[in-house]
Design a protein around this nucleic acid. Structure first.
Lengths: 206, 206, 206, 206
DNA sequence: TATGAATGAGCTTTCATTCAT
DNA sequence: AATGAATGAAAGCTCATTCAT
């Protein structure tokens, strides 16, 4: 019994992801989501209170993964390169698994002042502050330069990652395999750590 | 006579920028724009054909500056550091002059798959392709490493810049003075060229 | 269940007929139609896509009857007097049953160059061409004079019928009973066949 | 000086005729009329109080000619055939001279319950009652049969004429020359007087 | 649980008309 | 006399949400 409920909930959510991605939050119609889920539109309201809640439920999927990832990245004595690698690969993984979800995150949330409720904004800022925190630790540990503020570095890093994924979303480039994913991640990290200037190749942080 | 017309046009445009920034394209009401401009409802339609055209007129302001900047950045033998500096400072300048406009650009255009008409998308891609082109030249000239594709490097660079401005927009941080602007730009470029790893400081490309 | 739906549909249609008749197509307000039908505003759009479709649905009622009548009038070897009698009585019947509908047909369709879409125009021309065809047959069969083109005769006949009904519509004259209807039809046909000149009475075609 | 005023007035009227014909009363835009007349739209309001008055002014042209014609047709001892000939030719002449004006008369006035103000309606009814009067006289004089009411006969006659012109309007058929006009008029009258039945040819009223 | 009919606020856009210049 | 900027009342249509069945 409860299985059917779960299934329905997930079907609605999956349908909503596709529709929000296709149309954006405002252009998305509840009727279209219901149709995409193969149910009547009244039924959506049995599972979700409304459009906004449905949207939040979708984001929660993303946040949940993000939190788990951040917890993992921050544990123990993991070196900064590996930590940032975890973050980078998280976004690439998400994109690989569910490009539409990442698209929604990027187009409707990550930059929008208008769709951002206080709650969403805070959750979003956590990603920044945690990354900043890791970087500060690495600066104190001597792995990263400290003539530039941790905040700056975090911004540059996350901006690079996010724009990378954005570009893939815009151009609808799929990730072919695990190897390619590794290569992409390594490239981003390499530039972040060693810079783009000639002669910088291969100098990764100890 | 024509002065009054120009003034009105600009007043409407300025009002529209504020309302679009506050509400986003979809939530923005033409009535609110009219009220903000201190004119009657229908007059907006005397100057602009509709909401979409008004929005495009706003973006055109941005694109015009962007094009001029790109042309300037690509002229002659300017070294890559200076070129990317021009791009970076352009965004910071724009933000300083008209934060709302930059906000609109970032929230409603640069990331949105849904608001993006083909025309807008193409104009937007130009920024990427031109930057990529500059970077490729610099790679060939030996100023930038070439074990990483120009496309990757362009993405990382522009991502860093854009996220930087985004963050300022989100946190409503004003730029205090020209000196601060220079410092910010220098910081971004420094990280991009030399990397975040310890011991990388100060090695900028010739 | 479906009965209720049918009922609503018909209630909306009937309300629309009244409002279109009262105000004409352009002055008719969807809000007024909804109110006249005793339903909420948006529900009209649940049943009909918009004002134009609602209008077409009304006309379809009329067309459907017209087609059936024409088919009936053209079957077999029916003499021309009877055939034209069928047409005449059709209009009188329609007027008797639903004067508003006939009014709409006459004021908004039969003469309007502006409300006439290509589709409507063609449907309308069919009445003329079919009548012309019947008359041509009768000319060939010797029942009608052939020194005047079938087209002319058809126009004169239909003009007489239509103007007759128009006048009744304009003056809001009801048809009292079947006998009166017969008398009216007989009068029109008599003049058409035998003319208005003195001494023409009673000479009907064989 | 006053000539210029007259000219302007006529230019506006002529433009309005074309636009009303093209678009119908409701779809016609004051701005379009002004543009067609080659003046600014504010100026139209110096000459005519508004859209409705402009429309009435157009109809007045038509009414004026109609009145003059009726007066002419009713004078003296003119036989009925000639009188109805005058009416018929009046409509054909008008159509020949200004098809758009006739079109407006037919599509927007002659049948419309909605565009018909009390004033317009009365003016319009005059045509019917005068024709009826002529026919009654002819019945009393023995030229027309009196087993059918004058009202019926008038309706049939005017209906034939009007529908004839309507059809020409709908099909945009021009009148080639005076001879054709005479032929058309003669045909209509012939059918009206002598009927459509075979063997009726040539029996015109004494 | 499931349906989809029903509601109505809300929105963009149009356009006759006014009026300052 | 002439212009066209300015006004604002309408009106059609959409769609999130409610609710009877």
């Amino acid at each position: 019994l409860s299985d059917i409920k779960k299934e329905r909930e997930e079907a609605i959510l999956a349908a909503a992801v596709r529709v929000f991605q296709r149309r954006g939050f405002h252009r998305a119609r509840m009727a279209e989501i219901a149709e995409e889920a193969g149910i009547s539109y009244g039924l959506v309201y049995h599972y979700y209170r409304g459009k906004a809640e449905l949207f939040d439920a979708i984001l929660d999927q993303f946040w949940a993964g993000l939190y788990a990832m951040l917890d993992k990245a921050m544990t123990g004595e993991t070196p900064i390169a590996e930590r940032l690698g975890i973050i980078t690969e998280f976004f690439l993984d998400q994109y690989d698994r569910d490009p539409e979800l990442v698209n929604i995150f990027i187009t409707e949330v990550s930059r929008s002042t208008t769709n951002l409720t206080e709650a969403r904004l805070n959750t979003f800022k956590l990603l920044f502050s945690r990354t900043e925190q890791m970087i500060r630790q690495a600066q104190q540990g001597g792995a990263l330069r400290h003539d530039i503020s941790a905040r700056y570095l975090a911004t540059v890093f996350l901006g690079a990652v996010e724009t990378f994924v954005s570009t893939m979303v815009l151009n609808r480039q799929p990730i072919k395999n695990a190897a390619q994913k590794k290569r992409i991640a390594a490239g981003i990290l390499d530039v972040f750590f060693n810079g783009a200037a000639a002669g910088a190749t291969g100098i990764s942080p100890r």
